[in-house]
Design a protein around this nucleic acid. Structure first.
Length: 266
DNA sequence: TGGAATGTTGGAAC
DNA sequence: CGTTCCAACATTCC
């Protein structure tokens, strides 16, 4: 369910709850003091990457849907909610299979809004500086790093790398500056594209690489490997065996790895 | 139908 | 004490 754009959609759906007062707060979450929530009025609904933030005057509820989290607005489903908020007039919010916690400090002290690719405070220059600080980071890991690209998940990672034709195991330090900028630009652009397609219920249809067996560009088999620190499914186009080695500039540890037609290994 | 997956965390191990 | 690794969690889909 949730990469950053899906949480932006959720945030939008919840805007009408701003100003509503909680009449009952319950749930199976072990990390929340439900008594403390009751009686409070929602003053804002925000998000930071994959975090949904329900703001009350003196604290904030942070909801992370993880992989399988779901929610219902003014309905419930046949499961025990982690967090259930009821308001007057039969309105309520139910969150399932998610991680809920309470934030007590001001959000500006906790969150770097400029790291959220879908926040209006997103700062591409700051992202570039962060990339430069991690020359040994793989491109696939950089995209999943929430301190650099908050909101980017595995789907966006695969689609961005496919679009800019960068091999997922390229080292940031080996990427030419324009390519680093392209990575940043595309991470944002694709996130908004994701949001648009998600709204239209056509996201899956538009996947070029993620879960795909064939490269849509030249119809050769796509590679599927578990790459990076997090060992996540990574789909990329690799026909290195059919091509001469072209990445002579690369002198790192994986010298045996060669350039491919559609992707470049930096 | 078992295995895998849009993700993170917390504790063990070193 | 820092880091790295891995199990755990939870639900839906193929």
């Amino acid at each position: 369910m949730p990469e950053g754009p899906s949480i932006v959609l959720l945030k939008e759906e919840l805007q009408s709850f701003i100003g509503k007062r909680v009449t009952t707060a319950t749930g199976s979450s072990q990390k929340v003091d439900f008594k403390k929530i009751r009686g409070n009025k929602i003053v804002d609904i925000k998000s930071w990457g994959k975090h949904l933030l329900i703001c009350f005057p003196d604290f904030t509820l942070k909801i992370h849907l993880l992989m399988f989290g779901t929610y219902r607005i003014n309905e419930r489903k046949d499961a025990v909610p982690r967090l259930s908020l009821k308001f007057s007039k039969n309105s309520g919010l139910n969150f399932y299979s998610c991680a809920v916690s309470t934030l007590l400090r001001p959000l500006d002290e906790i969150y770097d809004w400029s790291a959220d690719v879908m926040n209006k405070k997103w700062n591409a220059k700051a992202a570039l500086q962060k990339l430069k600080k991690h020359p040994d980071l793989l491109a696939c890991d950089a995209l999943l790093n929430q301190e650099i690209f908050s909101g980017v998940g595995n789907i966006i990672k695969n689609e961005v790398l496919f679009r800019i034709k960068v091999h997922p195991e390229s080292l940031l330090g080996q990427l030419p500056e324009p390519k680093r900028k392209e990575l940043i630009k595309e991470a944002v652009a694709y996130s908004y594209q994701f949001l648009k397609w998600k709204r239209e219920f056509t996201l899956k249809k538009h996947w070029l690489a993620h879960t795909k067996k064939k490269c849509p560009r030249d119809h050769i088999p796509l590679q599927k490997e578990y790459l990076g620190k997090t060992n996540r499914q990574t789909f990329f186009c690799n026909i290195s065996e059919a091509l001469p080695v072209r990445n002579s500039c690369y002198t790192g540890m994986r010298t045996s790895y060669v350039t491919m037609s559609e992707y470049t290994f930096f």
